[in-house]
Every structure is written in C-alpha cells, then in structure tokens.
Computed example of a mutant assay.
Amino acid sequence: MRNTARWAATVGLAAGAVCGPLTGAAVATPGATPFSLYAPSALVLTVGHGASAAGATPERAVTLTCAPAPSGTHPAAASACAELRGARGDFDALKRRDGAACTREYSPVFVTVEGVWEGKRVSYERTFGNACVKDSQGGGFFAF
C-alpha cells in the first residue's frame, strides 16, 4: 500500500509539472499567428466554361485562406478575403464592381467554392453569363 501511495503521488506531481503551464488563460494578442484563436477559413475556388459544374471539368483552381492571415494562390487574396468578410460569408451578397462594363455575349462560365468559412463547411456554385460578368462580381472575388 505504501508503494502505491508513492507511485500515485509521483505521477500526480509529474502530471502537474507537465500540464500545469497548459492551464493558463487563452488570450488573443494582435499579430500572434502560430496558435490563433480564429476559426479556419480556407477555400478552393474553381472556374470552367459551361452552364454548370455538373459533368464539366474545371479549367482553373485557386486556393484562398483568410484566417489567420490572407494567403493562397488567389491573385488578390487580401482584397478577396475583405470582400467576403464584408458580405459576411454570403457569396450571393457579393456586389458587382462599380463601373464594370460587360458585353451581352452569352458564353456561360461557372464557378464553384468548396471549403471552410469561419469554421463552417461551405459549398457554392454559380453560373455567370460570361467571363467579364464573373470577373466583375464581388469587386474581383471571382477574378482569378
């Protein structure tokens, strides 16, 4: 019985020494990115020609990570993240860029968005009348 008590005390002290520093309060500090408290936001955007993504092969894909910092292969990651944040993650709420002039040519282009936005799974598909209309949507969110 005596050895069991010593063993239990030793394990308890060792666990306290190892886990003790991990029990501190989590504090968000500006600029600290290694262990961020932000919900993940990572998306894959694809584009292709056709009326829908069903049965079509995407022609191009880019990645967009918005948290903890904008990054990815999207050509304008920082502004794309800002636009999506402004729309509160609603892709349909992305407004057309002011001053964009596009022809009425019908050459359908589809985009898809798959991934995680602020910790929630998202799946989105939209068809635009042509590439110009797609590129002007959201001030450039779909321009890649």
Rank of each mutant, 00 (worst) to 15 (best):
A26M: 14
A26H: 12
A26Q: 14
A26G: 14
A26L: 15
V27G: 08
V27T: 15
V27E: 10
V27H: 13
A28K: 14
A28G: 09
A28T: 10
A28S: 12
A28W: 04
A28E: 04
A28H: 13
T29D: 01
T29P: 00
T29S: 07
T29N: 01
T29R: 14
T29G: 06
T29I: 05
T29Q: 07
T29C: 02
T29E: 03
P30W: 08
P30E: 08
P30H: 07
P30Q: 10
G31D: 06
G31Q: 08
G31M: 09
G31W: 09
G31I: 06
G31S: 12
G31N: 08
G31L: 08
A32E: 02
A32G: 03
A32M: 08
A32C: 08
A32Y: 04
T33P: 00
T33F: 07
T33G: 03
P34A: 12
P34L: 11
P34S: 12
F35L: 07
F35D: 01
F35G: 01
S36K: 10
S36Q: 07
S36G: 13
S36R: 12
S36L: 09
S36N: 11
S36D: 11
L37G: 12
L37W: 01
L37R: 10
L37Q: 10
Y38L: 12
Y38T: 09
Y38N: 10
Y38H: 11
Y38F: 13
Y38A: 15
A39C: 05
A39N: 12
A39F: 12
A39K: 15
A39W: 02
A39Y: 08
A39E: 13
A39D: 14
A39R: 13
A39L: 14
A39V: 01
P40G: 10
P40K: 14
P40I: 08
P40C: 04
P40L: 11
S41I: 05
A42W: 02
A42D: 13
A42N: 11
L43Q: 04
L43I: 04
L43M: 06
L43G: 07
L43R: 02
L43E: 10
L43T: 04
V44E: 15
V44T: 15
V44I: 11
V44F: 05
V44A: 13
V44W: 06
L45R: 07
L45G: 14
L45P: 11
L45C: 09
L45F: 10
L45V: 14
L45E: 04
L45I: 14
L45M: 11
T46D: 07
T46K: 15
T46L: 03
T46Y: 03
V47E: 06
V47M: 09
V47H: 04
V47W: 11
V47Q: 12
V47R: 15
G48N: 02
G48Q: 05
G48H: 04
G48E: 03
G48L: 06
H49G: 14
H49D: 04
H49P: 03
H49S: 10
G50C: 06
G50Y: 05
G50T: 10
A51H: 04
A51Y: 01
A51L: 07
A51C: 01
S52M: 02
S52A: 14
S52L: 01
S52H: 02
S52G: 08
S52Q: 02
A53N: 00
A53H: 00
A53T: 00
A54I: 02
A54P: 01
A54H: 03
A54N: 03
A54L: 06
A54T: 06
A54K: 05
A54W: 00
G55R: 01
G55H: 00
G55V: 00
G55C: 02
G55Q: 00
G55K: 00
